[in-house]
Design a protein around this nucleic acid. Structure first.
Lengths: 201, 201, 201, 201
DNA sequence: GATGAATGAGGATTCATTCAT
DNA sequence: AATGAATGAATCCTCATTCAT
């Protein structure tokens, strides 16, 4: 019963992780289902019990990884002291940049076909404030609320968030992977300044 | 013989155009070398006389298309009256956005694996001012010069240009193709405002 | 428990019927054991409790269907007034042809690998005349007896019956499915005449 | 030029023959394209240059074999002395039966999905009578003409021919392969008699 | 008896690339 | 230079069958 369900979860997870390793080390195109199954220690046919095909897996994997990254970044920002929302946002951005810098495979994988801003649509974060209620909010909702709290003057907070995220994602992709326009550490100050401008600071 | 050279150029061009049509209509992965050769009216083996493989062709094609787009946009901006460089930049941006809106296949193709900002590296535009000298400058050089002319206060013009282009490219990709965060026409004002902020206006 | 036996009978029957539907609608080759089990509402493994494999099921199914058809045809002929055996035979033939015409899937299924005449070997019909005795006779036996009753002059009645059945089955297969040599209704008079000739009428 | 065309013909023929051998020895279902290619001494991919898939090959092969058989039978009958058309027909039938008897694989192969009578549609035989003209006629046309020559009284010669062929093909299939209703040699007299009846002799 | 997750052999098909002409 | 027949590695995916629960 629960045993089987549990086992399946483990197997699915196994496939996810193995696939990610292979995708990032050999490339998506160069990784075959055969490779994944073998490395995950299951039979080829078993793969098809869990995913329609390779692209189904990739899709789900990308969503998983993007959500996890943002969740971690937001959770991290909560552990840090900050003056206002703009500061918190810069902390989040820094966290993501560092994560990508240390894990360039992840960056490469997430960015291949999907922009960061797009992935945001489906991401929901736990917001268990004071009480024990278990609520989740979309990143956009959290952002809007925080903007209000800080009294920032933004005509359309959602669009602004989108602009910021795309700017960050897109420029860091190049800075981290190719040192374009500059190595990421040298680039960060300019990026931070740009973000502040977009947020009217 | 110039005749032979010419003929080869025509054949290479034929392959480029045919490939682009197939890539945008059927998708890159779904287009085989056989398809390209057949549609271009040459034998399969002939393809290999001009390109190493499919990805060699894609690479060159992407560079060609990106360069052409920027060249057109800049040339267009020269035909228009504008007050200062920021205005010119916004005109260029608008041109590119319109071009992408009307030719979404092009957008999809250029953006698939490459960011706009990266493509800029290799783009050189003719700058034959008054005299007949035939000089070409990189987009970055042109930008720097114009910034100076307008007395804009930018610490690092190249980085700023990069930020602007990535912001535009990345957000428009989503706005045009998926109406995220808004349909492109509704999104434009926010984007323009963001660009002005980055340029300190 | 009779209950269990009964339940099993029901399940076996369910598998038979479901399989027939799938075979005739999708084709034998295109129907998988998975399909059959699913449509019958049992697990894949269960299938193997009732049949060795797909071809075991097909075999048994074909026999069942052929036997049922002949039984019905003969029973029908008993409800009709006829002058002599030739007439009765023609009535039976007509019944079968009509049945096949109205149920072409059945024809296709029975005829795929097996000829009608062959299937006759194993068919036994109840011949409970007046009394309550429960006897069964092969079709060949019934035929022989009737020939004797009518005083028909046939050197070898069994062979003649075989000839008639093959002639009918084989020609009607083509007439019904492909209008070869003629649509079945236009073809029938010729066929009837042929049968009469074979029976020395 | 001609060299290549010739080579291709040889290769196609090679595939046909190899496939037939495998089909008849191992069975159609059990023979893979891999098997055929290997046995024919060509690469797997080469198979697909000549045939769409296995069933395309089977179809063409079946037509080839059926046509060849009838052609041989008719040609043989021309070398033999006979009194009238009925006699000639019986000779042809005998030839085909013998051929099938000696080459049961051929019978099995031709009969699997196709009835003999159906295959007749597309068969054309050379009828270079006295003169050197090169005319071909369908079997049905030849039959009609001969019936006229002999003054046989048949309302519809084509239908009669069809009846005869189906009767022969269908019964012999069983007699030869399964001794049903009798071994073929013992069955022949009955069959001949039946054919005579159908032809009003 | 019933289940259905897991297996992995097996077959179809594609396609980049070579090379003799 | 141009051709296109031939190659065969590569990959996808199916499905009958088993077996632990």
């Amino acid at each position: 019963m629960g045993k089987i369900k549990e086992n399946q979860q483990k197997k699915r997870q196994q496939l996810f992780e193995t696939a990610f390793d292979l995708f990032t080390s050999k490339g998506i195109h160069e990784t075959t289902i055969q490779d994944i199954a073998k490395a995950a220690g299951v039979a080829k046919g078993t793969f098809y019990l869990y995913f329609k095909d390779k692209y189904d897996l990739i899709d789900k994997l990308r969503k998983k990884k993007t959500a996890k990254l943002f969740e971690e970044a937001i959770n991290f920002s909560r552990t840090v002291q900050y003056d206002n929302f703009t500061e918190q946002l810069l902390i989040i951005i820094e966290y993501i940049i560092d994560e990508f810098s240390n894990n360039q495979d992840l960056l490469r994988f997430i960015y291949k076909n999907l922009s960061l801003g797009m992935g945001l649509q489906n991401i929901h974060i736990d917001t268990d404030k004071e009480q024990g209620e278990n609520t989740t909010s979309s990143i956009y909702e959290i952002f809007e609320e925080r903007v209000k709290q800080d009294g920032l003057e933004l005509k359309d907070p959602r669009t602004t968030l989108f602009l910021v995220i795309e700017l960050v994602g897109s420029t860091c992709y190049n800075a981290i992977l190719f040192d374009i326009p500059l190595p990421i550490e040298e680039f960060k100050p300019s990026l931070n300044e740009a973000v502040r401008k977009l947020l009217n600071e």
